[in-house]
Design a protein around this nucleic acid. Structure first.
Length: 523
RNA sequence: GCCGCGUUGGUCAAGGGGUUAAGACGCCUCCCUUUCACGGAGGAAUCACGGGUUCGAUUCCCGUACGUGGUACCA
């Protein structure tokens, strides 16, 4: 009995030491299309969870009612599903920490704001936007172009720190609009360890008293992220590098709320930069340079503006994800092509780069090409079919599977299957006759007439077709090499595509004879 | 301005006191292919700068420059 209880103590200890229940989260705000950088943040969260047998949570950060966009939340879920990065817990699959939408957790935040108010780590501020504006104007100097609401200025503003207690109570009772601000301490250095960057230090004197509860009663990101990460038992918090400057606010909150020992481990991911020049990659850059930035097509319901996505550009989700994984992270080996599953086995936050990475669309297409070569033809045909449809080309599934097999090595995008494969389904609209006109002769014309007629009796297979072609060439004394390019151009229209006899075997006698006749007439 | 974070070929990047400083994309040349592509073989191209420390710095330290992010009742 003694050993039994000892054992259970040990096993509990052991379990909690070696297999902490890893929980990570992605917390997007539903304000529009899902950016490539956002998907990569999801991916790193997801991979870290997979690697550590953890749980991936999706929490909707919809505390800014002014920026809420209809449909954006569904869109985000669709993108994640397409990528195969479906969360374990979310508004669609609730776990033990519901609700997963911050607007529905509003009351929760007030309790904690109250706690901070009571302990003196936060205060009420009644300043109107105009007063804030005025303060910034007043203290603006060449050296300090953007004065903050901080330890230097809070004593000059209308808040519960400067007002008599009675007056604060009266204002509150009268329903005067207010915000709750954190009271940043003076002369302290806030340290934390970032999994990617190591020790990070901030001087509290240069951090402002961030708003915690807004005038409309909603929490800001700063309060909400801390409260929710705590309540949802998040063990590792990964987010973009743009959050680094506000990290000390979050650390202070964890401390002031008395939760420091439960604070997640942080990792601030490097940014994805635009290919030319510098700066964060934006949707605009994609439009300008001709490549997608969002995961999938997105139409802004308010402006009607449509932005195309990687999916609609003809990317395979596994290629998209593979490309993203290698942007800012590498396995330390020479392997570059990974499945999502493989990534989940080898990923580690320590191998994430510190510096931002410029996005290279050419390399992205290479990843896609690599995955197309590895993909199953049936699946490729299914995925490519819509691209043919869009061009008004009628295909049948069985043929398309075969066609896809013949042309896939020429395709970087699913969209490439159309120009590479349309001649299998319809006669070429134009023929590159200029390439053969120069060396054309009546002998060649009669060769093709004869061969076209022979087609009626020849066995319809690649080898038999080629044999009859070669035999007639020998018989007429024309070099086969002189005839191959013309034949190709008659059939496909240009100097590209798989082997000619493969094409003929595929399109059949009627089409072959017809295309030869059409070309002969034009020569 | 201030604060934070960065900086290895054009791009993604490995490496981390002594190396011919990997590999990939792209580019160029050649081979293969009676087309195009795929594939293969080569090639050009890199440690931001200045000081230290050291027998020896691309690597460690300090500066500088440059870039980038933040400096909101946005996330």
């Amino acid at each position: 009995m003694k050993t039994g209880s000892l054992h259970s103590v040990f096993s509990f200890y052991f379990r909690s030491m070696t297999t902490p229940n890893v929980r990570v989260r992605f917390a997007p705000s539903p304000t529009g299309g899902l950016h490539l950088g956002g998907v990569r943040t999801v991916l790193f969260n997801y991979l870290f969870a997979k690697k550590n047998n953890g749980t991936f949570v999706l929490r909707v950060e919809d505390t800014d009612q002014g920026r809420y966009v209809e449909g954006a939340e569904d869109y985000i879920f669709d993108c994640l599903d397409w990528c195969g990065l479906t969360p374990d817990e979310s508004v669609r699959k609730e776990g033990p920490y519901a609700p997963y939408r911050q607007s529905e957790r509003k009351v929760i935040y007030h309790d904690y704001a109250e706690q901070l108010l009571k302990s003196g780590h936060a205060y009420y501020a009644f300043d109107t936007p105009e007063e804030l504006e005025q303060m910034r104007e007043q203290f603006k100097t060449a050296e300090n172009p953007s004065p903050q609401y901080d330890h230097r200025t809070r004593g000059l503003m209308r808040n519960s720190l400067t007002l008599p207690e009675e007056e604060t109570k009266q204002l509150l009772a009268a329903g005067t609009p207010y915000v709750v601000r954190i009271k940043m301490p003076e002369n302290e250095t806030v340290h934390f360890t970032d999994m990617i960057r190591g020790d990070i230090a901030h001087d509290t004197n240069v951090v402002d008293d961030k708003v915690l509860i807004k005038g409309d009663g909603m929490p800001t990101y700063h309060l909400a992220v801390v409260v929710d990460d705590y309540l949802m038992k998040i063990t590792h918090a990964f987010r973009g590098e743009e959050w680094l400057p506000s990290a000390p606010v979050h650390i202070m909150l964890w401390k002031n709320l008395g939760w420091e020992k439960d604070m997640p481990k942080w990792a601030h991911l490097p940014l994805i930069l635009k290919p030319d020049g510098n700066g964060k990659l934006s949707k605009r850059d994609g439009d300008r340079l001709g490549f997608p930035v969002f995961a999938m097509d997105w139409t802004d319901p308010r402006t009607g503006e449509k932005t195309t996505g990687f999916r609609e550009h003809g990317f395979l989700p596994e290629a998209f994800v593979n490309m993203l994984a290698l942007l800012g992270w590498n396995p330390g080996t020479e392997q570059e092509i990974f499945s999502l599953e493989e990534l989940g086995q080898v990923f580690s936050m320590e191998r994430v780069h510190k510096g931002g990475a410029k996005f290279d669309y050419e390399k992205a297409k290479w990843f896609n090409q690599q995955h197309i070569q590895r993909a199953d033809n049936e699946r490729l045909a299914t995925l490519a079919a819509p691209f043919f449809e869009k061009e008004g080309i009628v295909t049948d599934p069985a043929t398309l599977v075969k066609v896809v097999g013949l042309i896939k090595e020429r395709c970087h995008l699913l969209a490439d299957f159309v120009p590479q494969g349309r001649f299998f389904f319809e006669a070429p609209q134009s023929l590159d006759l200029d390439s053969i006109k120069g060396k054309w002769s009546d002998e060649k014309t009669s060769f093709f007439r004869t061969w076209s007629a022979q087609l009626d009796t020849v066995e319809w297979s690649h080898d038999a077709l080629e044999a009859s072609f070669s035999a007639l060439a020998t018989e007429t004394g024309i070099k086969k090499g002189e005839l191959m390019l013309p034949l190709r151009i008659m059939l496909v229209g240009g100097k590209f595509g798989p082997g000619v006899f493969d094409i003929i075997a595929m399109i059949g006698k009627e089409a072959t004879q017809q295309r030869i006749a059409t070309a002969l007439a034009a020569l």
